[in-house]
Amino acid sequence: MILNILIAILLLSGALFFLVAAIGIVRLPDLYTRMHAAAKASAFGAVLMLAATALHFRDLWTILEVVVIVVFLFITTPVATHLIGRAGYRMKVPIWKETRVDELRDALEGNVHDSLRCDEHDDPSMRHSSRSPHRDHTVHEG
């Protein structure tokens, strides 16, 4: 009986996560924020509903298949979302006007040339132009 209640809670909460993802994909202003809502909430909702399936059947093959689907979803959803995001950025899909950080533009245009200039002239003031410590590290290594 407790197991049935747990299955019901898992099913309903998974469906609610799907509803959150759909509301996000309708209401958010931007391709990139929509991807953020769609990828994360929908993967979590699918995991909850598949966990309800595994709890309902409780035999080895069903649990194994649920684990396979969940692992596959957790691997492929970020990859697919990343690919769509990069393609959208290359297509110059407009970015929401309140977006502050655009790291891909820095990587594509600005800071790549900055690091090259740092290599040539060894200007210490240029080292603080890049924000992420990883890029600082590449600059120091030369």
Partner: peptide, 17 residues
């Protein structure tokens, strides 16, 4: 494309239910 992806994942959840 994002909407199609989301539709398919919703269908996966529906198949589980």
């Amino acid at each position: 494309v994002v909407a199609l992806d989301l539709i398919a994942i919703i269908l996966i959840g529906g198949i589980a239910g």
